[in-house]
Simulated scan of single mutants.
Amino acid sequence: MKLRNTIFYFLILSAMLSPILMSSQGCVAIRHFSCSMGNELESNLLAEGDFQIGMNYRYFKSFRHFKGTEEEPDRVSNNTEVINYSHSWDFSLNYGITNRLYAGLTIPMVLNERSSLYEHGREERNSTFSRGLADIRLGIGYWLFEPETGQKGNLALGMGVKLPTGNYNATDIFYNVGPDGSSQVRPVDQSIQPGDGGFGFTADFQFYRALTTNLFVYGGGFYLFNPKGTNGIRTSRETLSPILENEAIMSVPDQFSLNTGFGYSISETFSASLGARYEGVPVEDVFGSSAGFRRPGNVLSVDPGISFTQNDFSLNLHVPVAVRRERPQSVTDLETQIGTGQPRNGDAAFADYLINIGISYRIRGKEVDKLESKSDFQID
């Protein structure tokens, strides 16, 4: 009985490895982002002295353009769509300070490609690239209930900081944009910049609850506060039209994510989950200025997943599929609309789905037997 409960405990944890705190799909997401504590609930359910090392890989291709909630299908049919290919890796290290207090470090790396016509004089399609270290996150969290009293469920609250370690002025060659159609080296689009150039802080929560022997509910979310208004990096959007002068400099926007769902243990090593995710970039920041160019937007996704767990090793796959995408008016859209008297709502390209693959391994502390005796779910 103890073995079955212990196995179910780890199935609950591993089923939640990827879906909790990921960034939005496509151009709406300025860069890959997750909470300071990474993407793994299991990483935060640690005994005193435990370490958890992990890696989460994410891929998407964004190409469907939206204004508001309406898609612009002609962009694809006319071959004028902007296509982003995004690869990112989160390398995480978490530590159990006590059985309830934990800390974590996330080091992200990115590799991005952006293909477009309009950024290259509208004459031919070309690509720009960015790669390297993104913004490092540090965080700390606390489970509200003792392990022995919260065996069927628990709730954690956390906070963290985002350091401006990623390059927010990555450049590449843009064709047909200089004098007499020459090429120029310019900053790449905001959507593929590895960093945002601002110091930020996060607030997050996560919970789980066993409903029956094999069924559980989970959820979590985070909000990234970016008080800095703009980062001083030119977008060159004012060269497309003089009315876009207010979008000449990149904004440093907030970002958010929420998710919830159900999981089911199929066997002693496999579990499946099905959830919903809502995530994106808000129109205005909670603190500080919201000036400069940003693509606000949000995505609602259905998030199926499957996980494999054996001993202290976990492997998972999640493929969130977008069911609703929205690109609302930005602050600069509204400014332009007021100044010109003409309606203005910029667009953004979104992905149809994401691919998230997570791997983690726990290095046990000295009090293994003591914690395991406290951690077993009593759900007979």
Rank of each mutant, 00 (worst) to 15 (best):
L3C: 04
R4K: 11
I12E: 15
I20A: 08
R31S: 13
F33Y: 14
G38H: 06
L45C: 10
A47T: 04
G54E: 09
G54Y: 04
N56Q: 11
S62W: 09
P73Y: 10
R75K: 15
S77A: 14
E81M: 04
V82A: 15
Y85R: 14
W89Q: 09
W89V: 08
F91P: 03
A103L: 05
T106W: 06
M109K: 08
V110C: 05
S115I: 03
S116F: 00
H120T: 01
N126A: 04
S130H: 03
S130V: 02
I136T: 08
G141D: 06
F145Y: 12
E146P: 05
G153C: 10
V177E: 07
P179V: 03
R186T: 01
D189W: 01
F205L: 14
Y208D: 12
K228A: 09
T230I: 10
T235G: 01
S236I: 00
R237T: 00
P242C: 04
E247G: 01
I249T: 13
S257M: 07
G261R: 11
G263F: 03
L274S: 07
L274E: 05
G275L: 04
A276C: 06
Y278M: 09
V281Y: 07
P282I: 06
V283K: 15
G292Q: 07
G292Y: 08
R294A: 09
P296I: 06
V302F: 04
N311V: 02
F313M: 11
L315W: 12
N316C: 08
P320S: 09
P320N: 11
V331M: 08
D333E: 06
E335R: 12
T340R: 10
G341N: 09
P343F: 15
R344F: 11
N345V: 10
G346W: 02
D347N: 12
A348K: 03
F350G: 05
Y353I: 00
G358T: 10
S360T: 13
K370C: 04
S375G: 01
D376V: 15
I379L: 13
